[in-house]
Amino acid sequence: MKILIATLALALLAGCTTTPTGPQYDTTYTAKGQSSRARFLVLHYTVSDKPTSIKILTEQQVSSHYLLTDDAQPITYRLVDETRAAYHAGNSSWKNFTQLNNSSIGIEIVNKGWVDTPQGRVFAPFPQPQVDALLVLVKDIVQRHGIAPENVLGHSDIAPLRKQDPGPLFPWQQLAQAGLVLWPDANRVAAVRPAFEALLPDVFWFQRKLATHGYGIQQTGVLDQQTRTVLGAFQMKYRPLDIAGNPDAETAALLEVLTTPANAPLPVVQPAIITSPVPALPPATEPAPVVPETAPAPAAPVPVPTPALPTPVPTPVTPPVPAAAPAVVNTP
């Protein structure tokens, strides 16, 4: 028995002194110069119901960090750890950053998107319980990662020529009231708007302001389809009652305020008048089908974002560009 006990003791001591395999790291010191890899938070709608959204986001290449359901008591699923990249942004850009999958956290929201009707395009509303749950989720993420309000974006912000989610009924103003997104000061907008009513800027001015705000847009000086589409994306977020993509005084005033520091005086605006007529938009078709992250981007451009309407009742709106038919989950 003594021999057995001695043998077991030696084995235990040998186990305690076994050298661990693999590299060993000393974590005594922590660098002061560091920050979260997540610089952006991107919001999407799924263009599908809850079961299909779960299936697509868990079994196919497209993914997101979180999925927020539309149940009476919404459920927030975490599908991808925040330390890892999810495939939700696709070919994307904002300001000087591109391919945002690696620097963003993505939230997919169960919402059917839109349908075309004889009265025009109708977007699905976001139930208030779902919005309340989203506010809690967004607030938690931005606080932990230090994400600035100007970097809480819609898919249509970072990919305006391809995507239009989360659409014109998304409640951007509620997020703004919670201090979560960048929003123009209404008094400053009202103060500068008369100058644009008197003299509308030329197209190049609009393109330059949109690029300064963050959108990827070519500076052509021509009111082409890409300019209309990006203008429509901006209007969906900040002026959702009219998202036709037309350059007008209200849109110009919003852009001027958003691209001027809050503590800086608004400049005296002396823009050139647009001399050419604004061409009519082609009729809208169906939304673009869902494709996985590895599939090529759709050829046809698609509209993009704006603040929520005060009423949750679906409202017909006319988007600035054609699209293709919805499939399952809205893809990168």
Rank of each mutant, 00 (worst) to 15 (best):
residue 269 V to R: 11
residue 252 A to Y: 01
residue 14 A to Q: 06
residue 247 P to V: 07
residue 37 R to E: 13
residue 277 P to M: 04
residue 33 G to P: 15
residue 318 T to I: 15
residue 184 P to F: 02
residue 131 V to N: 02
residue 233 A to F: 01
residue 217 I to N: 00
residue 68 L to S: 06
residue 14 A to T: 05
residue 156 S to T: 00
residue 34 Q to I: 13
residue 159 A to Y: 03
residue 199 L to F: 14
residue 214 G to A: 02
residue 41 L to F: 08
residue 80 V to A: 04
residue 222 V to K: 07
residue 31 A to P: 11
residue 323 A to S: 12
residue 230 V to Y: 00
residue 241 L to F: 15
residue 236 M to E: 11
residue 163 K to P: 13
residue 290 V to N: 14
residue 90 G to K: 00
residue 118 P to Y: 02
residue 233 A to R: 02
residue 225 Q to K: 04
residue 75 I to A: 01
residue 285 T to L: 07
residue 285 T to R: 15
residue 215 Y to G: 02
residue 327 A to D: 12
residue 194 P to H: 06
residue 175 L to F: 12
residue 285 T to F: 14
residue 31 A to Y: 12
residue 332 P to L: 12
residue 215 Y to C: 05
residue 287 P to Y: 07
residue 311 T to G: 10
residue 3 I to G: 13
residue 122 V to D: 04
residue 329 V to D: 07
residue 251 T to D: 13
residue 114 W to L: 09
residue 120 G to M: 09
residue 49 D to G: 15
residue 190 A to G: 10
residue 79 L to D: 00
residue 274 I to G: 10
residue 198 A to K: 14
residue 186 A to Q: 10
residue 65 H to Q: 05
residue 131 V to H: 02
residue 221 G to C: 13
residue 123 F to A: 06
residue 163 K to R: 15
residue 266 L to C: 12
residue 115 V to I: 10
residue 280 A to Q: 14
residue 117 T to H: 05
residue 177 Q to K: 11
residue 300 A to D: 10
residue 36 S to V: 08
residue 106 G to C: 00
residue 85 A to T: 02
residue 76 T to N: 09
residue 37 R to F: 09
residue 217 I to H: 00
residue 8 L to Y: 01
residue 238 Y to F: 15
residue 206 F to Q: 00
residue 275 T to A: 09
residue 146 G to T: 03
residue 311 T to M: 15
residue 301 P to V: 01
residue 166 P to K: 15
residue 126 F to L: 05
residue 30 T to G: 13
residue 86 A to S: 06
residue 90 G to P: 01
residue 161 L to C: 00
residue 136 V to C: 06
residue 242 D to I: 05
residue 202 D to Y: 11
residue 78 R to P: 08
residue 15 G to I: 09
residue 135 L to I: 09
residue 197 E to Y: 09
residue 20 P to I: 03
residue 321 V to I: 12
residue 47 V to K: 06
residue 59 E to G: 10
residue 157 D to T: 02
residue 55 K to R: 11
residue 211 A to V: 10
residue 42 V to D: 02
residue 135 L to E: 12
residue 64 S to W: 13
residue 154 G to Q: 04
residue 209 K to M: 06
residue 246 N to L: 11
residue 132 D to V: 01
residue 184 P to W: 07
residue 157 D to I: 01
residue 322 P to Q: 08
residue 215 Y to L: 07
residue 282 P to S: 07
residue 175 L to H: 09
residue 129 P to D: 01
residue 149 P to E: 10
residue 58 T to Q: 15
residue 236 M to R: 12
residue 252 A to G: 03
residue 288 A to G: 08
residue 232 G to F: 04
residue 49 D to N: 13
residue 46 T to R: 08
residue 186 A to D: 03
residue 214 G to T: 00
residue 19 T to F: 06
residue 135 L to P: 06
residue 92 S to F: 00
residue 16 C to H: 14
residue 144 R to Q: 15
residue 253 A to V: 03
